[in-house]
Amino acid sequence: MNSDTAKGKWNQIKGEFKERYGAIANDNSKEAEGKMQELLGEIQEKYGETKEAIEKEIESWK
């Protein structure tokens, strides 16, 4: 497991927390942010890319 894979797992955990916290506080932006972080973490874990590289790729789709 490389460091980007480990960071991806951590980002998933943080995303899940924000998603749940956002739902409790009725804060849709926190919930959406949590879902995005969780997705980034899953991609990071699976492909071993940095979060920044993934975000840059997604940004290029716009």
Rank of each mutant, 00 (worst) to 15 (best):
K18M: 15
T50V: 04
K56H: 10
K30M: 14
L40K: 01
E52N: 09
D4N: 15
G8Q: 02
K62C: 11
I58V: 13
Q37G: 04
Q12C: 09
Y47W: 08
M36L: 13
E16P: 02
E38N: 06
W61A: 08
N2R: 04
S60C: 06
G22F: 06
E45K: 07
A32I: 11
E55R: 09
S60H: 02
D27I: 01
G22W: 02
K35L: 05
L39P: 04
Q44R: 00
I54K: 05
Y21E: 14
E49W: 10
N11P: 05
S3F: 07
R20E: 13
K30Y: 07
K56C: 07
E33D: 15
D4M: 10
G8D: 00
K7G: 02
L40R: 05
A23S: 14
A6E: 06
N26F: 08
N28P: 07
N28L: 10
S3M: 10
W61R: 11
R20H: 12
I24H: 11
I58R: 08
A32W: 04
T50I: 06
S3T: 09
S60Y: 02
E52H: 08
G48T: 01
I13V: 15
G8V: 01
Q12D: 04
M36H: 10
E49P: 00
K46E: 07
E31I: 04
A23F: 09
G34I: 01
K51A: 11
E31T: 12
Q44T: 03
M1P: 13
W10P: 01
S60G: 02
D4K: 13
S3C: 02
E55L: 10
S60M: 06
T5Y: 01
K56P: 00
E42C: 03
K9D: 01
E55M: 10
I54N: 03
I13T: 15
R20Y: 09
K56W: 03
E19M: 14
K9T: 05
G22E: 06
K46A: 11
